[in-house]
Simulated scan of single mutants.
Amino acid sequence: MDSQRAEARALEAEITALRRACVEPPAPGEDTSRVRKSFREIYQADSEGWELSKDLRSHLGHLESELQFLSTLTGISIRHYSKKTEDLTSTEMTEKSIKKVLQRHRLSGDCHMITFQLEFQLLEIQNEESLSSVITDLSIIMEPTEYSELSEFVSRAEERRDLFMFFRSLHFFVEWCEYRKRTFKRFKEKYPEAVHLSEGASSSCMGIRSPSRPGFELVIVWRIQIDEEGKVLPKLDLLTKVPLQALELDKNGVIETAPLSFRTLLGVLGIEATLESLIKSLHTEASN
């Protein structure tokens, strides 16, 4: 206790001397080397602190720019993130220069209109020669959406503990959804009388009607599927709504083979050109 008091008194005395040096010029012949040294040390410490702070701000700005670039590129934004680390290294492992660490990660974010939360555990084992990492547990929570295709995909990603597949497939799934939405919206604006979207532009179905043929309608069902490997593919089908009388008059089976002809046309013209050709065929009939 006495030593601590002595140290405190010494520091107080030094502070008093520095304050006096700031307001009083040194007397002639007085040794000012100690004061100058103290000022130099303080200035040097402050300068180093300022430089360090400047470097940290610059580095932080660079990381934020990279994060913004990745968010723009992938459409995925991470809003919250936390990490906890637990050292699982045993005494026996330490003797063998093996380190075992379990990391628990939690994050939440969104990919355009889809919100998600993730919790996963990452086990790292390091020895003198290598470092291995493996995800031992993965839990994904998706906010309720109208995209029923995502439910099965999320369960598959959790089962495989495949974090990369989840983010990659989610990115492409959302891109296809946005493309479908833009395509339906464009045709609705271009052919407002012929095109009908029962659930708005976000609908997975587009109806094409002919004013000159009451009861006759072509329905485009555009689903977006995610296969076992996480590959995202569009699947378009054509359904026909035709009055019974028209079916009886269709001796050549044109209506019956329409779905197959539609798939063939998709392979030749592509999605947008095929849809527009169907709309124009009914729209032209109505105009004539």
Rank of each mutant, 00 (worst) to 15 (best):
R186I: 02
F164R: 13
R180I: 00
D162K: 08
S202W: 08
R182A: 15
A157W: 04
A194N: 14
C177P: 05
A157G: 05
T145S: 03
L163D: 00
R186K: 07
R182D: 12
S169H: 05
P192Q: 04
R186H: 07
R160C: 07
C177E: 15
L170M: 05
E199Q: 11
K181F: 09
R161D: 05
F167M: 03
K190N: 11
E199Y: 12
F187I: 08
T183W: 01
K185M: 08
L170P: 00
S198M: 10
F172A: 03
R186Q: 05
E189C: 12
E152L: 13
L150K: 00
F153Q: 14
H171A: 06
A194F: 09
F187N: 02
W176D: 13
R186E: 03
A194K: 06
L170T: 01
R186A: 09
S148H: 11
V154T: 08
E189Q: 15
E146W: 14
L163N: 00
F187G: 01
L150I: 01
F153M: 11
S203H: 05
G200V: 10
F166T: 04
F164G: 09
K185I: 03
L163C: 01
T183S: 02
A194H: 13
F166L: 11
S202P: 04
E175R: 13
E178L: 13
S204P: 06
F153Y: 15
E158R: 01
V195L: 00
E146C: 08
R156I: 03
